[in-house]
Design a protein around this nucleic acid. Structure first.
Lengths: 226, 226
DNA sequence: ATTACTCCGATTGTCGACAATCTGTGTAAA
DNA sequence: TTTACACAGATTGTCGACAATCGGAGTAAT
């Protein structure tokens, strides 16, 4: 019997996953120094695998390494997030356009089923923001996969989405935006159903612009409170 | 006295650079197995740093690692390149649009100077394709930098451009495309000078579409010859 | 002849120890 | 008091050796 989930792969992969999770959830604060020996000890492994994991996270842009000075958790300042959302708007818009041509009817109808679930979740419990946030990411990633472009999946899936999730955890406390977001999701699926790639792209870009505006305003208030 | 350039940074960084160069130039064939012990020996270092370098290259998508089975140089098949160029078209188009608003007049005029150099190189020596190819990348990356979006610079600069360079080395032998490409570059700079972001984006997207078409046709001929 | 199994070599994954480098503190001189 | 230097502690970078795992050669049974 294992005390934990199977945790497949090499120790370096395990460490990368656990670290990514800790960073995304905010368990490790932004800018925090990451001590190799400490972390290796707490994960019950040597420093070799841990160093490989740090290299991996560096590629994911979750940590920043400085030679001879160690690794620190990345800091998501306003400019970084702004740049991220600008790129994301373009890439996910592209994904939508491709998905309108590539996804099967079945996959599209599954999207509707997914949104039904989200709607139920929202009605049942307005508070459980975490699940809703993850559900939103699920929706977006399904469309990215639907594009059939492996490069897009790599960029938005395994790598950048971690940054997004990290951002969510910092800003998902308000989340009055869930209902309008759901409506926008519905519109996007409708466009996909009609195989209107142009429209789907436009709707997705607006959707992401709206998300950024919401986050941006929230950061304004936070700064003002300081 | 050093036999080589200074080669700054940790050994892992050095190894990553040297490996990336070998892969991009085709010195290491696509799909070739990468033996850790061998490479470490040839680089005069231990396996630790080399493993970190491989992790780094994996993040750059230059190698593919399979747990317990080692690392292999990535294979650029048609689908992969097609996906890459589709993403590149969107991202560099975006970069152009932003650059039209962000670059200083001075930076834009430097672009013209750069193109003058290219023109001279082409007239003097039609054969030296390597320099021209690198010059082209230089042009593109200057615009990406001009966008001011750090995320774009990361995506297109340090990471994906390596894949592009790799592609160039496989396909840059013909390169009758240098002259029309230069003209397109001129048009793009002209649009930037007029601060017309929409036009600049459109021209860049066409430029990249053209590049892909050229490469695609070339791959057709290659396949046909087989 | 084909299939399945076993064993062996080779390669990867991991660890512990040592060397190189950086950071912060304490001391001494101006 | 301030500045500069030197030392000590801690942290990162690197190496060599050992354990775990995989692929393939060889053999035997159907």
């Amino acid at each position: 019997m294992q005390t934990q989930a199977p945790e497949q792969g090499t120790l370096a992969d395990v460490a990368a996953r656990r670290l990514a999770h800790s960073i995304v959830t905010g368990e490790l604060a932004q800018g925090q120094k990451l001590n190799e020996a400490e972390l290796a000890e707490s994960f019950g492994m040597g420093r070799g695998p841990l160093r490989e994991a740090l290299r991996h996270l560096e590629g994911m842009r979750l940590v920043k390494r400085i030679p001879n000075a160690g690794a620190r958790v990345v800091v998501l300042d306003r400019k970084t997030l702004s740049d991220l959302y600008a790129v994301r708007e373009v890439l996910e818009g592209m994904a939508c356009r491709l998905a309108a041509a590539q996804m099967s009817d079945d996959e599209i109808s599954q999207l509707n089923t997914l949104l039904d679930q989200h709607e139920k979740q929202i009605k049942q419990q307005g508070g459980k923001v975490y699940a809703q946030s993850e559900g939103d990411l699920d929706f977006h990633y399904r469309i990215v996969r639907g594009s059939g472009n492996q490069m897009l999946m790599d960029l938005l899936g395994s790598e950048q989405y971690q940054l997004l999730r990290m951002c969510r955890f910092r800003t998902s406390r308000n989340a009055q935006r869930t209902k309008p977001a759901l409506n926008q999701h519905r519109q996007i699926v409708e466009a996909l159903t009609q195989r209107d790639g142009e429209l789907a792209e436009m709707l997705m870009r607006r959707h992401i612009q709206g998300a950024w505006r919401s986050i941006s305003e929230m950061m304004d208030k936070e700064e003002q409170a300081t």
